[in-house]
């Protein structure tokens, strides 16, 4: 195992694409952002991490891309990682194709490679454009091309659809699903959009008061669409877990009349990659603590 220790305590890259987090803790002054946080992502698995704003999900993502360090705990990530942020974060003084190969070594920063990556997101003709001329959706697709050209084993998505308009978001969902299926990286999508999480992810985890409060496998057939009893049931479970009630004013009986029956079981679908986690809704997963943690 290559040792690329970035955290004070045992952050080691794993090259299979798996993510292994045990008892991670992070606090800013008196504010505990992560408390005893555990998360596993199997190679090639798409995990969505849900949480209300300020729940620490962005901090976790920063830890995973080495912009922050954990105070305690074990964090193992693949060394080949890349990230798409909420904002495109394209360098305004560089043409689109140079943004795609930003920071790569000279041998890997060829225009041909950049154009191939841009073609994957449907922007091959924009290679010479300046970032300011792109629309929000186009800029975010360039950011996606910039992440994928690095052939990441782990792709980190930090609310990448949050700033897009509804129609562009639908198209981006499809594009991300398609590209993740093709490149098959492990994916951690940090979001507060429950529908988006259910549409895209193999597994949804909820981050609440610093630790994982729920971990649910999404066993819906792909391609997924909004609606349907199973979708709604999972959606309501997640909403309740995050702490949002769908209809705070109405009586529970009235709400149930307008909604599909909530007792619909999640459909079970065989999938090889997600063997790490139980295939049912497991509230407050307790994982044995490891001895390495100080």
């Amino acid at each position: 195992m290559s040792t690329r220790t970035v955290a004070p305590v045992g952050m080691k890259p794993v090259d299979s694409g798996a993510v292994h987090i045990r008892g991670a803790a992070k606090s800013f002054g008196a504010k505990d952002v992560l408390v005893d946080f555990d998360l596993d992502i199997a190679p090639g698995e798409f995990v969505a991490l849900l949480g209300a704003s300020g729940s620490g999900k962005s901090t976790l993502l920063k830890i995973l891309c080495e912009l922050e360090t954990v105070d305690h705990g074990i964090v193992r990530v693949p060394s080949a990682r890349s990230v798409v942020f909420q904002e495109p974060r394209l360098v305004p003084s560089m043409q689109v194709w140079k943004n795609v190969v930003l920071g790569r070594s000279r041998a890997l920063a060829s225009r041909a490679a950049a154009e191939a990556a841009l073609a994957e997101v449907g922007l091959a003709s924009h290679a010479d454009d300046w970032p300011r001329t792109l629309s929000g959706g186009e800029a975010q697709r360039v950011a996606l091309a910039r992440a994928l050209i690095r052939e990441p084993r782990l792709l980190l998505l930090d609310e990448p659809f949050a700033a897009l308009d509804a129609l562009t978001r639908i198209r981006m969902h499809a594009l991300v699903a398609q590209l993740c299926a093709r490149h098959n990286p492990s994916v951690l999508l940090v979001t507060h959009d429950i529908d988006e999480a259910i549409l895209l992810a193999d597994r949804v985890a909820v981050l609440r008061s610093g630790h994982k409060s729920l971990d649910a496998v999404v066993d819906l057939p792909r391609p997924r669409t909004r609606g349907g009893p199973a979708f709604e049931a999972l959606r309501r479970t997640l909403l309740a877990e995050i702490g949002v009630s769908t209809d705070p004013e109405a009586e529970p009986a009235v709400a149930d009349q307008t909604q599909p029956p909530r007792a619909a079981p999640l459909p079970v679908r065989a999938r090889s990659a997600s063997t790490v986690v139980p295939r049912t809704v497991v509230p407050r997963t307790v994982v044995p603590k490891e001895t390495e943690r100080r």
């Binding site: 891309c65 912009l67 942020f85 974060r89 360098v91 560089m94 930003l102 920071g103 690095r150």
Partner: peptide, 27 residues
């Protein structure tokens, strides 16, 4: 210069002198 831009460039491996020359001075 937007610190988020510098943060992103660092994540993608642009550091030190190259960061100054290719990102900070042009912007």
């Amino acid at each position: 210069i937007d610190p988020k831009l510098i943060e992103a460039a660092r994540v993608f491996g642009l550091r030190g002198l190259a960061l100054t020359r290719r990102l900070i001075i042009p912007n």
